[in-house]
Design a protein around this nucleic acid. Structure first.
Lengths: 135, 135
DNA sequence: GTAAACCCTGGAGTATAGTCCACGGTGTAT
DNA sequence: ATACACCGTGGACTATACTCCAGGGTTTAC
């Protein structure tokens, strides 16, 4: 199929598909062209793109997704291997959540302090929130 | 003070300070130079940098931080204004956390399904995790 | 006199994941 | 004939926040 159809079927834009191609995430043999030089993508590319898209939706980066796709295509994606990758991703997501939650608490407590009025120096003056008090 | 001292006192690298300067987050008059062309930073720049650093630590982007610094320096950083900015940031952080949590649950349930063995087709074959079943 | 430590500028590179554009060719319908 | 949708390439640009480098000058100590 041509890129337009591939785009429609995969739900990725042409530009994205071409970008993936540049990145080497999908490949086309130099012979897989029509006479007019249009690229003729085999179904395997569509499958690969859909796999890539699905794995990405699980929070993996493009490169990580490509690695997992490679495992699957090599029939090396054992439950053990794949769940290990998923566990690692869960761990990094959890770390990120912790980080965000810490910042959120910091913000929340600052806002609370501000709104309860204890930080206000004078009316119509700068809020102490975000200010450097001492060191 | 020269950039080295500024760097030591602010805890930012020279490169970062120069980057902030390029971005217009701090400014130096063309006259604030020593005879040898070395830049002579006034204390106000150090204060600005420390403020920037502190606000950034609350999860704001560099540009957002610069806006808040500008408010503070214009004495317009009222509690109302500042806590509104903080509330908005809290909301975006919460959205991000929700997003991550959704992905985490998806991953977690996939791994559980995998490990409980219900997805395994045959031993030594690809795990169904991440595979496209139908649609 | 020379090494170390400091300063300057401009520009490239890093990571992530595209998105957009120019410029040009092709295929089909009217 | 020409409008329209489609295809190709290469390269620039977006956002975020730096980080590093080359190539050069200055200051200070020994």
């Amino acid at each position: 199929m041509l890129i337009g159809e591939l785009s429609r079927k995969s739900g990725l834009t042409r530009d994205t598909i071409r970008f993936y191609e540049k990145q080497g995430l999908i490949t086309l043999g130099r012979r897989e062209r029509r006479v007019n030089n249009y690229k003729e993508y085999p179904d395997s590319v569509l499958r690969r793109l859909m796999l890539l898209k699905k794995i990405k939706s699980y929070g993996f980066t493009l490169n990580e997704s490509a690695e997992i796709v490679a495992l699957i295509e090599a029939n090396l994606a054992s439950c053990e291997r794949v769940s290990k990758a998923a566990d690692e991703k869960i761990a990094t997501i959890e770390a990120k959540i912790q980080e965000l939650q810490a910042i959120k608490s910091l913000l929340r407590s600052s806002v609370d302090a501000c709104l309860s009025g204890c930080c206000r120096p004078k009316e119509d003056d700068n809020c102490q929130l975000f200010q450097i008090n001492k060191q």
